[in-house]
C-alpha cells in the first residue's frame, strides 16, 4: 500500500484506497506517472552502474568508471577537445545520409506499394540487398571513394535504404483498400489516388518507419567512423580505445544515446504537429 499525497498535503487515501501494482494488466497511465516511472527506471540503471563501479576491484576500476567520471570526461571533451565539432560532424553524417536515403526510399516504397508490376520487378533484388551486412561494403566504398565523408555517407545510406524501402512498401500495402476504392468511385484518376489518398493515408506510418530506421542509422554511424575516420564521435571513441581511456569511450556511447533519444523525440513531435488528425478520440 502506498500513501498518496496531493501537493497541498491533503491525504488522498481518505478519498480512495487502492493498491498499486507494477504488474496491473494494461492500465491507463497519466503522462506524469509515465514520466516518473521512466525516470525511476533510468535512475535505477545509474545506481546499478555506480554500485558496479564500487564492487569492481580497485586495480580494474578504470575499466568501469563511475557515471560521474564519465560525465567528467564528457565535459573535459567538450571544453578542451572541441568535442562539439565532432558531434556536429556525426550529426551531419547521420542527417544528410538519412535525408538522402529517404529521398529515394520513400517515393520508391510508396510507388512499389501502389504498382504491382513495379513491385514484382524490384522487390526481389531489394530484399536480397537487405541481407547483405552494410559493414561488408566498407572495403568497396574505401576503394571507390577513399577515406572521405562521401564514403561514410554512402555506408550510412546503404545501411538503412533497403530496410526503409521494405518498411514503406509494407506501410503502403497496409493502406485500407476501401479508401482507394472510395476515391475511384468518386471519379479520381490514378494520379489523384496516389497523391491525394495513398500519400496522406500512409504519411504517419512513413514517419514512424523513418523514426525507427534513423535509430539503425545511429548504430551504423559508429561503424562508419571507426574505419578510416579522423573526426566524429566514433573516431573520438576509437582513439580513446587505443589509450584504454574507457571513460571517454563511455562518454561517446552516452553522447550517441542522448542524441538518439533526442532524434526520437524530435520525430514524435514532428509527427504530432504534422498529423493533428491522427489521434484517437479522447486522447
Amino acid at each position: 500500500m502506498i500513501r498518496l499525497r496531493r501537493r497541498n498535503g491533503e491525504d488522498v487515501n481518505q478519498v480512495a484506497r487502492r493498491s498499486v501494482s507494477l504488474f496491473e494488466l494494461r492500465t491507463v497511465l497519466s503522462g506524469r506517472t509515465s514520466l516518473l516511472l521512466g525516470l525511476a527506471g533510468a535512475t535505477g540503471f545509474f545506481i546499478i552502474w555506480e554500485v558496479g563501479h564500487y564492487i569492481t576491484p580497485e586495480e580494474s576500476q578504470r575499466f568501469l568508471p563511475a557515471p560521474q567520471e564519465v560525465l567528467g570526461a564528457l565535459i573535459t571533451l567538450i571544453v578542451e577537445k572541441d568535442y562539439i565539432a565532432d558531434i556536429l560532424k556525426s550529426c551531419f553524417r547521420i542527417f544528410a545520409s538519412f535525408f538522402a536515403a529517404c529521398l529515394i526510399a520513400v517515393p520508391l516504397g510508396i510507388a512499389m506499394g501502389c504498382f504491382m508490376r513495379l513491385r514484382a520487378l524490384l522487390n526481389p533484388t531489394i530484399s536480397a540487398f537487405r541481407y547483405l551486412p552494410a559493414a561488408s561494403f566498407i572495403p568497396l566504398l574505401l576503394v571507390w571513394f577513399g577515406p572521405t565523408d562521401t564514403q561514410k555517407l554512402a555506408l550510412l545510406v546503404l545501411g538503412v535504404i533497403f530496410f526503409l524501402v521494405a518498411l514503406i512498401l509494407d506501410n503502403t500495402k497496409a493502406v485500407q483498400p476501401e479508401l482507394i476504392e472510395a476515391a475511384l468511385t468518386m471519379g479520381a484518376g490514378r494520379r489523384r489516388v496516389v497523391t491525394e489518398v495513398v500519400v496522406p493515408a500512409v504519411a504517419p506510418a512513413v514517419v514512424d518507419s523513418m523514426r525507427n530506421m534513423i535509430a539503425v542509422g545511429w548504430t551504423y554511424l559508429v561503424i562508419a567512423e571507426i574505419v578510416a575516420a579522423s573526426d566524429g564521435i566514433g573516431a573520438v571513441m576509437m582513439r580513446a580505445g587505443r589509450f584504454l581511456k574507457v571513460d571517454i569511450i563511455m562518454a561517446g556511447i552516452l553522447t550517441i544515446g542522448i542524441l538518439g533519444v533526442a532524434t526520437d523525440i524530435l520525430f514524435r513531435l514532428a509527427a504530432r504537429y504534422a498529423f493533428p488528425w491522427n489521434r484517437e478520440r479522447g486522447e
Binding site: 472510395a182 496522406p200 493515408a201 504519411a203 491522427n278
Partner: peptide, 10 residues
C-alpha cells in the same frame, strides 16, 4: 462501403 471510408486526414 461497410468499412469507414471518410478520409481521416480531412
Amino acid at each position: 462501403f461497410q468499412a469507414y471510408t471518410s478520409f481521416p486526414w480531412l
